[in-house]
Design a protein around this nucleic acid. Sequence first.
DNA 1: AAACTCGCATGATAATCATCATGCGAATGT
DNA 2: ACATTCGCATGATGATTATCATGCGAGTTT
Lengths: 202, 202
Amino acid sequence: MGTTKPNRGKRAESKDESKQRILAAAADMLREEGGGSFSVADVMARAGLTHGAFYSHFPDKDALIEAAFRAAFNYRESWLAAAEGAPAHERVPRLLEGYLNAKHRDRPAAGCAFAACAQEFAHGTAAQRRAFADEIETTLSRLTALLGGKDGNADTAACESEVIGLLSLCVGAMSLARAVEDPALSTRILEAALNYGRGPAA
Amino acid sequence: MGTTKPNRGKRAESKDESKQRILAAAADMLREEGGGSFSVADVMARAGLTHGAFYSHFPDKDALIEAAFRAAFNYRESWLAAAEGAPAHERVPRLLEGYLNAKHRDRPAAGCAFAACAQEFAHGTAAQRRAFADEIETTLSRLTALLGGKDGNADTAACESEVIGLLSLCVGAMSLARAVEDPALSTRILEAALNYGRGPAA
DNA sequence: AAACTCGCATGATAATCATCATGCGAATGT
DNA sequence: ACATTCGCATGATGATTATCATGCGAGTTT
């Protein structure tokens, strides 16, 4: 057999590509404006299609939001990757700096989906909330793996506190920094949270 | 002059009362569901009125949301009050416990407006974002006054970090805890953030 | 108490959407 | 080649909702 068994026909393949474009568009718009603010037609247009095609890809808008959320974790990957390359004691600062910066604040569409979606999902469907929990668990696992053996003490409870605290701090500071009108205050928030997370030592 | 110069007539007074009821209803619903989710008619009904009366109280829905947000800080007052009564070194734990608990998580309508509104206001009107910034400034001042002289070191920068970090941690953890479907995970988040905020010492 | 004000209710209006129904045309299978 | 399938576009439909227009009746003024 030639390549890895395409066997799907040009048509199915093109449908998959469409779906990917829809998901990518929705993932951006979800983080940029929030799921309540964009219309199905908006997303489809951004994906280069028209509204009618939507329902052959997703059962309804809520399902799109859930799927788009799950597809919106490209940021997490690069965030973690940047810290992986650092020596153990540099990792927390690296994570903080990779998150709590102006570029991240100003480009939510390319950023953390937790910070962009948390409030909205609090009133979302059960499936959406499950997706949120899933992604939180995944993120916590990754962070734990990254920071777990930080010092000699691999104490489970302490590590859980550190990992969850770090993520909460990041998400909270970003939420506040984005909601505030005054740019100077916004920057103060990011920088102060960065300091706080670095700990009293540094 | 008898009492404090009522001089306003029964009609004006009743209008003020109506406005207060509208604001109270909106403040609750804003924190419960978010401004995008309730309708003007919903709020008016909750205030015991009908939709038509709305526009003689507020110019539009955005203005209501801003005003309701500003009226939604009753929680902050009791939160701070509970810590004021404590000795200096007990105040941070007191604040963390007063915020990061299940009751607060489960009754957003009576809780912190930052945690409930941050994401929504990030895409709100300029007036709304200004209101958000104002309330943040006020909250930070209050926290600074409360924690400022905590130890001998009243270092301005260190205190700003602590105060902003604390608030960010609280808001972030609450946002995550509310967005997650799994109740066990939700509780883990609150408790871990609480530990994190207490510092490595305790 | 007649004239007037004004808070609030009822009843449009118009826009925005999610979702469904229909049809064309390209891809597929026989 | 012919019949079929299916992705996508066009065009409803119905619901929700912000906002405006109108009118009544209680309160206020002279």
